[in-house]
Structure formats: structure tokens, C-alpha cells
């Protein structure tokens, strides 16, 4: 039975825990603690070790969802959590002062992992502010020489997060059929 692992990363309050909760078929395992530093200005509790959720597929396969802590002081967890991962879901908050700085930071922080796997980006809270637009995220990502799915998402909406994860999985394997029949691919 195949086991897959996907990592959710991003700054504090970008919606990583919420996204995992939206997708998970089990109650998520969270390591939330009361925020005591600047994080408390954005939300009362924050992830300190990891979040864990699970998608049970019909064929018995499992997709394990791991959320990294947003705060950099817990970055020692990032390498641990990415071990064996299929790809990275980077959640960015459009209301933050400089979301491009966040993007650059996480792309650099997970550079080795992304190079070996796949990246998708979900931008949250675009309903609160339309600027910067997704086109600008696309341009910023292009400055890293990368093309990846960048979607506007509501982390509370299962469909949104599901599409993000599907885009990641299809980017790894679009499902090209290989059986040759009557001279053409079928």
C-alpha cells in the first residue's frame, strides 16, 4: 500500500493548519501552543512542532499531510519533516506586509527539497486584499526560474486545498497513458 507525504509550509497565520484540517480525513494532530511573541498579534495560538493530517484514498493508499511550524525558530523541524516528501505546498498570506519576501525566504529555505520534488503555492486572504495580484506572484516565482501552480485559495475550503494538492500531484505525474493502440497513444 503506497504511502505519500506532502509538506505544508509558510509564514505564521498563512493557513497551513487550516488547510490540513480541511483536507484531512482524520482529526488532525496539532501541536498548538499559546503564542507569546509577535505571533500573538496575528493569532492566539501557533504550531510549535508540526501538524499532521491524513487523506485515505479509496484504493487503500494514504497521503500524509505534514504542516511545518511557521516561526523560523522552529526551523530545525523543517528538514526533519521534509524527509521522504513528494512536494511542498507553500501557503502565503496576501495581507502580510511583504508576501514576496516570504516567498523568497521559503523557496530558499526549502531549495534542495523543491529541486528534487515539486512546489505549489496557495495564496490566502486575497478576499481581504486583491493586491498584490497573482500575476505578481507568478513574476516573482519566475525570477527563481520556476513555473509552478499558484492559486488563490481559502484554506477553509476543502475544494481549494484539494485542487492545490491535485495540481502538485499532477505536476509530478500528469498521467500520460502509455499503452499504444492502433498507432496512437490511448
Amino acid at each position: 500500500m503506497a504511502q505519500h507525504k506532502i509538506i505544508f509550509a509558510g509564514p505564521v497565520g498563512a493557513g497551513k493548519t487550516t488547510a490540513i484540517r480541511s483536507l484531512s480525513d482524520i482529526p488532525i494532530v496539532a501541536t498548538d501552543e499559546d503564542a507569546t511573541d509577535m505571533t500573538a498579534k496575528r493569532k492566539p495560538q501557533t504550531t510549535v512542532a508540526m501538524d499532521y493530517g491524513l487523506i485515505k484514498l479509496d484504493n487503500g493508499e494514504r497521503v500524509h499531510l505534514y504542516g511545518t511550524p511557521g516561526q523560523e525558530r522552529f526551523d530545525f523541524m523543517w528538514d526533519i519533516l521534509t524527509e521522504g516528501g513528494l512536494g511542498l505546498v507553500l501557503m502565503l498570506d496576501n495581507t502580510r506586509t511583504n508576501p514576496f519576501q516570504d516567498m523568497s525566504f521559503y523557496i530558499n529555505a526549502f531549495k534542495d527539497f523543491i529541486e528534487e520534488t515539486q512546489l505549489v503555492i496557495g495564496v490566502t486572504r486575497m478576499d481581504e486584499t486583491r493586491k498584490p495580484a497573482l500575476t505578481e506572484y507568478v513574476k516573482h516565482l519566475a525570477s527563481f526560474g520556476m513555473v509552478a501552480p499558484i492559486f488563490e485559495v481559502d484554506a477553509r475550503e476543502k475544494r481549494d486545498v484539494s485542487l492545490l494538492v491535485q495540481a502538485l500531484l499532477f505536476s509530478i505525474d500528469p498521467g500520460v497513458e502509455t499503452v499504444v493502440e492502433r498507432g496512437s497513444y490511448r
Binding site: V138, V147, I150, V153, R159, A167, S171, P174
Partner: peptide
């Protein structure tokens, strides 16, 4: 670049086509 699929009318197999 990818279209903003979650906010657009879905096209069957659009994700697979885009990924390819």
C-alpha cells in the same frame, strides 16, 4: 503560467492538461 483554477470555471482534466 498556471491559470487560477480554483476561481475559474472548471474544465474537465484541466489540471492534467496544464501539468503536461
Amino acid at each position: 503560467a498556471w491559470p487560477n483554477i480554483p476561481r475559474l470555471m472548471s474544465v474537465p482534466d484541466g489540471l492534467r492538461i496544464a501539468a503536461l
